[in-house]
Amino acid sequence: MASASAAGEASRHQVVTWGASADRLGQAVADRSYRLVVRTSVGGSRPRVRLSNAFGDRPVTFGEVYAGKREEGARLVPGSNRRITFGGARSVTVAPGDSVTSDPLSGRLAAQSDLVVSLYVAEAAGQATGHGMAMQTSYATGGDHAGEEGEGSWSERIGSWFYLDAVSVESAADTGAVVALGDSITDGWQSTTDTNRRWPDYLSRRLQGASMTGIKGVANEGISGNKVLADGAGQSALARLQRDVLSQPGVRTVFLFEGINDIKAHTGVTSAQLIDGYRKIIDRAHAAGKCVVGGTVLPFKGWSEFDAAGEAVRQEVNDFIRSSGELDAVADFDKALRSPYDRERLLPALDGGDHLHPNDKGMRVMADAVDPADLECDR
């Protein structure tokens, strides 16, 4: 018979509480520290961080890694900044194309809280890895300042996350996560910086109090400019599915909301080709035992690349998403945000101003269009 403690451990598992898609992020710099501010979704114990060198062409060595609670700006709550180890060591070298997950920290990480991960990059060169458009202010400085709790050394403000691509926590076995696979709309462009008003943020807040689902974790794996079929602004959704989505711990559902960049780029992509790309993502996610929810593609009339041909593809793709039955559920973002007077346009009150990206209110309407119960399926 298993002991009570063993049974307790078996009833808990790791669940992703924050994520950001890895991409190329300029030139790597040695002897430099980053103080990265991220917002948790689900709370839990024994948090771990994942550091990525996915796009590096040379090894990167992290001399120190710390995690603490943010008080304000770059200043941490006194006594909260704690060293993170890797296999018991305070430093770790990550090979090109690889990633590393830390040892767990003792204690709990609260839901909907600002976690600050401070990295000291001791050795690095060549291509850096990170997430370019964070919509969140973080900080950088020369030298090793990762262990400091004050803000005095952190004079440089940055709008990207370097090397950090996931945070997970230990939670009950019936708690899971959804990963939003998307482009700039999911990444949060046109939402207000430093306020966590991307649509996955609004969804995360809803899920914490939703009794009809055990899905509480939300990882935002949007990349501005991303496409389903072709590399460019990040690797294609097809190419990055395993690293950014399926590899995350505790994931039960993939939220697929991509396609507008394939459509509006005038590359000649047809609805059949885009639907084939969706089917490959759906099949791979299903094979991994994940539910797949699809979001219909938003209208974009008024955007400089809009034309009738692209609009026809969008309508055909949305027909597939709504009616094919190949997805486990659908969130009809198009219906929720389009103008009743011109269904090829965003409702002006929800338009961020460029006729493609929703504003804060539009982001909230998107999250409200997702039925939390739809994030569960029988797979």
Score class of each variant (00 low, 15 high):
G295N: 09
A285R: 04
G302C: 02
H286T: 15
S324K: 12
H286L: 15
S323M: 06
R314D: 09
E316P: 05
C291G: 04
S304I: 13
G289H: 07
V313E: 05
F320M: 12
A312M: 09
S324A: 11
F306R: 01
C291E: 00
V297I: 15
K290I: 00
F306G: 01
N318W: 01
K301A: 08
A312Q: 11
I321F: 14
K301Q: 10
R314I: 13
A288D: 07
G325Y: 13
E311P: 06
V313L: 07
D307R: 01
C291L: 04
G295L: 07
G289L: 09
G295T: 01
R314N: 10
E305N: 10
S324H: 14
E311K: 06
R322W: 10
W303Y: 13
N318I: 02
A308V: 12
C291Q: 02
T296N: 00
A309E: 06
G302K: 02
D283I: 09
I321D: 08
A287G: 14
A309C: 00
C291I: 03
A288W: 02
S304L: 10
I321S: 07
V313P: 03
A308Y: 12
R314F: 14
T296R: 02
K301N: 08
F320I: 13
K301H: 05
R314G: 10
V292N: 04
I321A: 10
A288Q: 05
A285D: 09
H286I: 15
A312D: 11
R284S: 07
D319S: 15
G302A: 02
D319T: 15
F306A: 02
N318H: 04
V292F: 11
F300K: 03
K290A: 00
V317F: 09
E316A: 13
G289Q: 13
V297L: 15
G295I: 12
R322G: 06
W303E: 04
V293S: 01
E311T: 12
K301C: 05
G289W: 10
E311F: 12
G302T: 07
R322Q: 07
G325H: 15
N318Q: 02
S323I: 10
W303F: 09
A309Y: 02
V292C: 03
R314W: 05
R314L: 13
